[in-house]
Write a protein that binds this DNA or RNA. Structure first.
Lengths: 238, 238
DNA sequence: CGGAAAGTTGACATTCGTCAATTTGTGTGG
DNA sequence: CCACACAAATTGACGAATGTCAACTTTCCG
């Protein structure tokens, strides 16, 4: 639960009652293994999912079997907000790594949203931030090289993890397979491998086991054509 | 104003009071020429913009000067909803063609949203639909060919125009330059030109002046790997 | 008409994908 | 602790898709 409090606090100050309200939400925790389905495309879900640990993602399956990951959920993110509004899902949601999520029934979400307009606003803000992130990803996919796209991915995940206190200085844990990076960036596995080597050789990014180390943040920002403003990493009265 | 009524009606039935409430919003109409800026990145806007005619778009400018269009607004769409929640814009909004927009101050939008929870829900739904559209575009950009991406673009615009009554059967008006199509699809101008020729030769899409004619909808859907479910082109109680 | 913008085409360079082999890493049972 | 099996990462060779540059043609509009 506290992951959500952390996430929303980074958008605006929460009152004690608001925190209490969030904590009053009833949920049940579920575990999913890497690759497992959390929500199915075309279904009419009854609950959204607060990521508690690990990573979740929206995933598209193409006609000829390809795969594109279109959005990543880090701890503190509510997956399936859109389906609450639309009634129906348009893409699968899967576990990108082993992960724990808290399932919130839409009744509980509705209660939260209807009780506190301020919390509602901060929650819908999640949709707006997701939109900004999507637009940044589209620009990255459409107009930058493979190394830039991968760099962009690392920059974004780093900042989002930091926002909920899950990243150290220039270092964070990310247990993704290269094939998954390929499916996020719209590249082939082999090309991801080669591009990662380029980033290593340029001393921008290094891996230590399952940790990612950002060796030169400024240079990485430039290489990736990344401007994180869109994440709204600032608390403001809203 | 009626464009918004039409758009929201396609999401759920509107009561007479709700329609009246929408019509009570004060606005002032503005005209923009093709390419002109409507909102600037990084600014703190005071109003959102209801597209009344023409097309608007979110546009990213890359470090080396490239350009990527990440989202298109057709008549009935409210541009700048996110900035209402986030306070700050993350991308430019520009006129893609000559267009007329109604500027709604955020006070007026706030009044609408605060007065009617049902309308609020239908308006936030716009964010959810935009998200689904972004995810579809990401899959298209990441995992399909140039012809498929262009086809995807035409499919989406056709359905969205139809939803607000601006498209005939398999035919609609679209006054875009090939360079703009390139900036939407993440391709070069030259390659767009060649891919359009392929689509013409396959008898999927034809142009007549500024009209686009869809010669074989079923085949186009397949070519473009397009599934429009995400546009939520169905009215449901929400 | 005349001129500029938009569209079209050819030749060639570059990026990225595919296929296939090899190496490295990791967990498990003996 | 070792041996094995399997997943993941790495590398090379080659082909396909797309980008770039530059010319030329058509359309549009005053």
């Amino acid at each position: 639960m506290d992951m959500l409090v952390r996430a929303l606090s980074s958008r605006d100050t929460l009152s004690d009652e608001e925190i209490g309200l969030i904590r009053s939400v009833r949920f049940h925790t579920q575990r999913f293994g890497r690759g497992q389905a959390i929500m199915d495309v075309g279904s009419y879900p009854q609950a959204c999912f607060l990521v508690r640990s690990g990573l979740a993602a929206h995933e598209h399956t193409m006609l000829e079997g390809g795969r594109q990951i279109t959005s990543i959920g880090v701890p503190g993110d509510l997956m399936g907000l859109s389906a609450y509004l639309l009634k129906q899902t348009a893409t699968d949601v899967v576990a990108l790594t082993d992960c724990e999520v808290d399932a919130w029934s839409y009744e509980e979400l509705g209660r939260l949203v209807d009780t506190s307009p301020h919390l509602a606003r901060l929650i819908w803000m999640g949709l707006a931030i997701e939109g900004a992130s999507h637009r940044a990803a589209l620009a990255s996919m459409g107009r930058t090289s493979a190394t830039a796209r991968i760099g962009h991915l690392y920059c974004e995940i780093y900042l989002r993890l930091r926002q909920v206190g899950l990243a150290a200085e220039n270092r964070f844990d990310l247990d993704l397979r290269q094939e998954q990076v390929a499916d996020i960036c719209g590249l082939s596995l082999v090309h991801v491998n080669r591009s990662l080597k380029v980033l290593r050789d340029k001393r921008l990014i290094r891996r230590e086991g399952t940790s990612v180390i950002l060796e030169d943040w400024t240079a990485l920002l430039k290489e990736a054509d990344f401007d994180g403003t869109y994440l709204s990493l600032f608390s403001a009265a809203r």
